[in-house]
């Protein structure tokens, strides 16, 4: 991994008619990095990937790849790989021919071609399926063919658009590990799109969290997990109790409420994970509206004067029945301070 910028999106804006799907997005990526693009459905991830691949023309902004302005370069000349969410395998071609498709267009023939195709299939463990048609493969296998088809082209950047979302949970984990391995072995620069924060946290060198067509926060998985900058990011990484801070107090449904402890300077909001809520004692009260068992812990949904609160308790402790009133505290020293509330 090197530090100089390999791919950069500068003030990238894309619109479908009147709908602005990507709005002034800035992003710089180093060679060999594994980036995940994380965000809720509809925030413009696919649109961004299609723009990087050259399938959509930006209405403004610039895309630089390997020192070259590729904004106007056609998708077929860009040397960017794209693994589609639907895999987009060619149903009329065998697995072998699918993988050979791009190589043949580059003019490869005979031994070279065969060698490269089989090598690609070997990387994803599908050599024995070379003569099958895509329809005769399972979802996971189709996914691998799609990966091999892109990888044999030695793309400058490999884009994967929610590649795991059509797989079941066990396969998803397996493919994730496999993707990591391929990325490590080849050192390809990779952008992995997902709406699942667990996937993003597990895979990425850096996470780019998107909201409404723009970047909300960029950082390492730990940065995002521990130091969210805004309520949106906090909520996305599991801080389910977020309150704006006004004059050192929490702004709640019930008006301004004092916090126990001191609010860090400059914090516009405070956020607590359910586990950070001190349950059992404290100045606030809430009645139990829902309980759910989560293995080692139990999650409580409380109706309180501050609004709904999510708290967590050890599952070994006796369960509190619905309707019970519980005391709780939101200690400032445990909270993550946010720079922005909105």
């Amino acid at each position: 991994m090197s530090d100089h910028v390999y791919l950069s999106l500068e003030a990238l804006t894309l619109a479908y008619g009147d709908t602005v799907a990507v709005d002034g997005l800035d992003l710089s990526i180093a060679e060999g990095e594994l980036i995940t693009l994380l965000g809720p459905s509809g925030c413009g991830k696919t649109t961004t990937m299609r723009a990087v691949a050259g399938l959509l023309k930006p209405s403004s902004g610039r895309i630089m790849l390997d020192g070259r302005d590729v904004t106007r370069l056609g998708a077929n000349k860009r040397q960017v790989g794209l693994v589609f969410q639907s895999y987009a395998l060619f149903p009329h071609l065998s697995v072998y021919e699918n993988v050979a498709f791009g190589l043949k267009l580059k003019g490869e023939r005979g031994r070279d071609l065969e060698g490269h195709v089989m090598e690609g299939l070997k990387t994803v463990g599908l050599t024995q399926f070379a003569s099958r048609k895509p329809a005769e493969l399972s979802g996971g296998q189709q996914q691998r063919v799609s990966l091999a088809r892109s990888m044999v082209m030695h793309p400058k950047v490999l884009l994967l658009d929610e590649p795991l979302s059509n797989l079941d949970a066990r396969l998803r984990l397996e493919m994730r590990t496999e993707l990591q391995r391929v990325q490590r072995e080849t050192g390809v620069t990779m952008i992995f799109v997902t709406h699942d924060q667990g996937e993003a946290l597990a895979l990425a060198d850096r996470i780019v969290l998107m909201k409404g067509g723009a970047v909300e926060q960029i950082g390492t998985p730990e940065d995002l997990y521990n130091r969210p900058k805004s309520a949106f990011v906090a909520d996305f990484v599991g801080f389910e109790n977020v309150f704006a801070v006004e004059d050192g107090k929490l702004r709640t449904a019930d008006g301004a409420v004092p916090v126990s402890g001191t609010v860090p300077a400059g914090a516009a909001a405070l956020a607590w994970r359910p586990a950070m809520v001190a349950l059992g004692s404290g100045p606030h009260h809430g009645s139990v509206r829902g309980v759910s068992f989560a293995g080692g812990t139990r999650e409580y949904l409380l109706d309180s004067s501050l609004g709904p609160i999510k708290a967590e308790a050890d599952a070994a402790l006796p369960v509190h029945d619905l309707g019970t009133t519980l005391a709780f505290d939101l200690p400032a020293e445990r909270a993550a301070p946010l720079q922005r509330y909105a």
Partner: peptide, 21 residues
């Protein structure tokens, strides 16, 4: 099927090649 045309495009095919292949 969805996306086979963009997939071919990304793999380097021009419009004529996409049509025939």
């Amino acid at each position: 099927p969805n996306d086979v045309v963009p997939a071919a495009r990304v793999l380097g095919a021009n419009w004529l090649q996409i049509f025939f292949k």
